[in-house]
């Protein structure tokens, strides 16, 4: 589904990613861990298509198509979703209207009509229930005055609505208390299927107790320096990242 080959990327002429290789297949859950500043968020941002990041070398292939020439919205239309570490506040645009706009933009790109209002409403109710989101919450302005936990839950709600093939969750666990973390993880697990894939980016192992990865990768200094199974995450939790840094100093 996603094939990243020798990816080098920079922002403001500073090289952050220095040759990433990653293969994600349908039905898989990958975790990308690593110390702060290792390039985790950059990787997710580059895959989602932020214009400020320059791909210097290598390629990102999604469902057999090179993403190089595609804008962020076109990547979204193909089924790539990024849950932001810091979602943006949009005053005056409600959660409901925002998600309607997003869904219908994708449908339009696929040559489909707008989703009928009753169908939309039904889907919104269903997905809100999945994430234990109150209906009042849906008529609030997007992310405005939301707590950290509400913002993250809202990100996963959007993921549930958009039903992406590939979801990248960038530090979705940061700022979440354990109860909110369980709700979010439960939501993600229910959305998992043999046809889609999830890439979880996290600093800590805790989230991975709830969203269990098939593969764990350690990103350090712009490269994936170690890959393994979920046991690797436990090892990192126990030993920290210093031994990784020493090995690759």
């Amino acid at each position: 589904m996603l094939t990243v080959k020798d990816l080098h990327a920079s922002v403001e002429e500073k090289e952050i990613l220095k040759g990433i290789n990653l293969q994600v297949n349908p039905g898989e859950v990958h975790a990308i861990m690593g110390p702060n500043g290792s390039g985790k968020s950059t990787l997710s941002t580059v895959i989602a298509g932020h214009e400020d990041y320059e791909v210097e070398n290598g390629s990102i292939n999604f469902d057999g198509e090179d993403l190089a020439e595609l804008d962020a919205e076109e990547r979204a239309h193909k089924g790539i979703f990024l849950s932001f570490q810091y979602p943006v506040e949009i005053p005056g645009v409600t959660v409901t209207n925002f998600i309607k706009t997003a869904i219908n933009a994708s449908r339009k790109a696929q040559g489909l009509e707008d989703m009928p209002a009753n169908e939309m409403l039904k889907k919104i109710r269903e997905k809100a229930a999945l994430l234990e989101i109150d209906s009042k919450f849906l008529s609030r302005s997007l992310n405005e005055g939301f707590s950290g936990g509400e913002k993250k839950r809202n990100e996963i709600f959007q993921m549930a609505m958009l039903e992406p093939k590939l979801a990248i969750l960038d530090e979705t666990d940061s700022g979440l208390d354990i109860d909110a973390l369980k709700i979010v993880a439960n939501g993600v697990n229910k959305l998992k299927s043999k046809d889609n894939a999830v890439v979880v980016i996290t600093h800590y192992q805790r989230l991975l107790d709830y969203i269990v990865p098939d593969f764990v990768h350690v990103l350090y200094n712009g490269r994936i320096v170690k890959s393994g199974t979920k046991e690797l995450a436990h090892e990192l939790e126990a030993k920290g990242y210093d031994w990784i840094k020493q090995e690759h100093a």
């Binding site: 400020d52 962020a72 919205e73 949009i90 997003a102």
Partner: peptide, 10 residues
């Protein structure tokens, strides 16, 4: 970028 990543054109 946030909006565009949700599929909303520029």
């Amino acid at each position: 970028f946030y909006l565009r990543s949700r599929g909303i054109p520029k």
